[in-house]
């Protein structure tokens, strides 16, 4: 009973990832690509993706850009405002590793120095196709991980 409810919950989480987009100091190229990925041309609503205005409603945080020291506190705050379970996707080379800004005195090198990241999408800028591919891969890995967790919990229940 509990297992099937858990399965239903996992399915629903896979089917409706709501995203919020946050610019952490990018040059705006990745942001335009993220916005392009949400337009009717790519039609992400097929997969249940919706752009939300507030972190309180979102599941996936799309970050672009190396984190500037000014915006780091805001990024952490937005991350903490999101309810669990939450995912972070770093969009673009700068967000993954710092890119050309790596080593600057006013920059961190990548999102993962501020908050934990679940998926990295390289590219300068990352194209909408790459962003969609990255998000679906993130969801797939989440699905596999949850399925494994369910299986192992079932086995341990049988053993005990």
């Amino acid at each position: 009973m509990i297992k099937s409810v858990q399965k239903l919950i996992n399915w629903s989480r896979l089917k409706s990832p709501w995203v919020i987009h946050f610019n952490t100091g990018a040059c705006n190229a990745c942001d335009i690509e993220i916005v392009a990925a949400l337009t009717p041309v790519y039609d992400l609503e097929r997969f249940g993706v919706q752009l939300k205005g507030t972190p309180r409603h979102a599941d996936v945080l799309l970050c672009s850009g190396p984190v500037t020291r000014l915006i780091k506190d805001r990024l952490v705050r937005i991350y903490e405002q999101m309810p669990e379970p939450k995912f972070v996707v770093a969009v673009g080379t700068c967000a993954c590793s710092g890119g050309v800004f790596d080593g600057c005195y006013n920059m961190l090198s990548g999102i993962d120095e501020a908050i934990p990241v679940n998926a990295y999408i390289p590219g300068c800028p990352a194209s909408p196709d790459a962003i969609i591919d990255g998000v679906t891969k993130l969801l797939k890995s989440f699905e596999e991980g949850e399925a494994k967790k369910l299986e192992s919990s079932g086995e341990s229940a049988v053993r005990s």
Partner: peptide, 28 residues
């Protein structure tokens, strides 16, 4: 709304999936 914007739009279970997902999320 989606068809009038010439896109495919959400699958039929979308509102239900949204509802279950929101129910299972953390409450702040």
């Amino acid at each position: 709304y989606a068809r009038m914007q010439t896109r495919i739009g959400p699958p039929w279970f979308q509102p239900f999936a949204d509802f279950v997902k929101l129910l299972s999320k953390e409450l702040i």
